[in-house]
Amino acid sequence: MAERRDPASSQGEPAAPAADMYPRKILEYMEGFLISKTVFTSCELGVFDVLLAAERPLSAEEISQAVGASVDGTQRLLGACTGLQLLNTQWDDGQAFYSNTEQSRVFLTRSSPLSLYQSIQYSSRTIYLCWHYLTDAVRSGRNQYEKAFGVSSKDLFQALYRSDEEMVKFMHLMNSIWNICGKDVVTALDLTPFEVVCDLGGCSGALAKQCTLAYPKCTVTIFDLPKVVRVSREHFVSAADQRIGFCEGDFFKDSLPAADLFILARILHDWTDERCIELLCRIYKACKPGGGVLLVEALLNEDGSGPLTAQLYSLNMLVQTEGRERTGAQYAALLASSGFTNIQHRLTGKIYDAVLGHKET
């Protein structure tokens, strides 16, 4: 007997979905921004700091009074944080008392050396606003500073550092990221042979510190814009960091100091391929024979399958910069086009990975 076919299927129309199909993942993705804003708001109000200072579980009423918020709103926020496993809840005589989880204590309190608080603030007050215009960015292929903040992005870093306050926020963001990921990226490949290091766009100096900790014989010069160097000296790099120095300049325009190794951490992903090659060629000329350049970036899989974080970061580069995230092979091609050879890359298993190119002796 011939098999009976659904008329819709024979006409190329999709078959009806199973009756019990449920779009769990899609609903989770739709609600993703709700989770982000719950974390952002909890940090902004200081919920995790209040619980750290109290050194005991607190009720919603106590927390609301400490952060200056309504009891009802605080209860709902605390409930969501509990659901997100950012808070522990214990009950006493029918009343809930809240305390930080270990992750929250380490990463969400302002005083922790591994705090992501400043990074969260930047995400909430800058990146989140740019992402409101993601559709426009996809359509136009351009960043969205003008729509989000009313500033021109003709000069990318004039837009990024559009005020001293915004510049300091960005520097805190970079500081918190390298406090967590810096050791992994500077030790992913052996940098022992390179004793004179220049960190281009070194910002707060957090990666430079990780480099000096990992390699006791190296010295690091942070090369950055004059106003960034001023803030870094005042707020981030102390006199105790004796093996870290500074050089002021624009790495596209000014002379680069000679070095054994140049570090470009989260730099090339800001720029087009043409601008990347322009910068890498300038570095090649300044690099000592036998030296190299270390790229620190979130690498995409060669087949484009992920990682999801790097794919999302590439969208973020669209709304915020002129650049994109790339694969290891794409960065290798940029390095090779600029004269570098013996190119290696290593995945760290965390957000950022390492690519190392060498200049022949």
Rank of each mutant, 00 (worst) to 15 (best):
Gln121Phe: 13
Tyr98Cys: 03
Asp190Trp: 00
Pro113Thr: 04
Val197Asn: 00
Met167Trp: 07
Ala206Trp: 02
Ile127His: 11
Ala206Tyr: 04
Ser115Trp: 05
Asp155Val: 08
Thr109Glu: 05
Cys198Lys: 00
Arg105Cys: 03
Ser140Trp: 05
Ser152Asp: 09
Leu200Val: 13
Ser163Asp: 08
Arg142Cys: 14
Thr101Asn: 03
Glu102Tyr: 09
Ser176Cys: 08
Phe107Met: 01
Glu102Ala: 09
Ser176Met: 02
Gln103His: 14
Ser115Thr: 07
Tyr128Gln: 15
Ser119Arg: 08
Ser104Glu: 00
Ala206Gly: 04
Asp164His: 11
Asp190Val: 01
Glu146Thr: 14
Asn100Thr: 05
Ala159Pro: 02
Ala206Met: 12
Phe194Ser: 00
Thr109Asn: 02
Ile177Tyr: 02
Arg139Trp: 12
Gln118Cys: 10
Ala137Phe: 00
Asp199Tyr: 03
Val197Lys: 00
Thr187Asp: 01
Glu102Phe: 09
Ser104Ile: 01
Arg125Lys: 14
Phe194Thr: 01
Arg110Glu: 15
Arg105Ser: 09
Asp199Lys: 02
Ile127Val: 15
Ser104Met: 03
Ser112Trp: 06
Ala148Val: 09
Thr135Ile: 13
Ser176Asn: 09
Ser176Lys: 01
Leu173Gln: 05
Leu200Ala: 08
Leu189Trp: 03
Arg162Ser: 10
Pro113Ala: 12
Leu200Phe: 10
Gly150His: 06
Ser140Val: 07
Val186Asp: 01
Asp136His: 15
Ala148Ser: 11
Arg139Ser: 12
Asp199Ala: 04
Ser123Met: 14
Phe170Gly: 09
Ser163Ile: 05
His172Lys: 10
Leu114Ser: 10
Asp164Ile: 07
Ala137Asp: 03
Gly205Thr: 05
Leu200Glu: 04
Asp155Tyr: 08
Leu114Gln: 14
Phe194Ala: 03
Val138Ala: 07
Lys169Arg: 14
Leu108His: 04
Ala188His: 01
Met171Asn: 05
Gly182Ser: 06
Cys203Trp: 05
Leu129Tyr: 14
Gly205Lys: 03
Cys198Met: 05
Leu189Ser: 02
Leu129Thr: 14
Leu200Gln: 04
Glu195His: 13
Leu173Tyr: 13
Asn143Ala: 07
Cys130Ser: 15
Glu146Met: 12
Ile120Cys: 02
Ser140Ala: 12
Asn143Trp: 04
Glu165Cys: 07
Asp190Cys: 02
Arg110Ala: 15
Ile177Asp: 00
Leu189Asn: 04
Asp199Asn: 04
Gln158Pro: 05
Val151Cys: 10
His172Glu: 10
Tyr128Leu: 13
Tyr117Thr: 12
Gln121Ala: 13
Arg125Phe: 13
Gly201Pro: 03
Gln118Gly: 15
Met174Thr: 06
Leu129Phe: 13
Gln144Leu: 11
Ser111His: 11
Gln118Leu: 12
Trp178Lys: 01
Asn175Tyr: 06
Ile120Val: 09
His132Val: 12
Leu156Glu: 08
Thr101Tyr: 01
Thr126Leu: 12
Thr192Glu: 10
Gly141Thr: 03
Lys147Ala: 15
Val106Met: 11
Val168Asp: 13
Ser176Trp: 00
Asp184Ala: 15
Ser99Asp: 09
Leu173Pro: 00
Ile127Thr: 11
Arg110Met: 12
Val151His: 04
Ser115Ala: 08
Arg125Leu: 14
Val151Ser: 08
Asp155Pro: 06
Asn100Lys: 03
Ser204Ile: 03
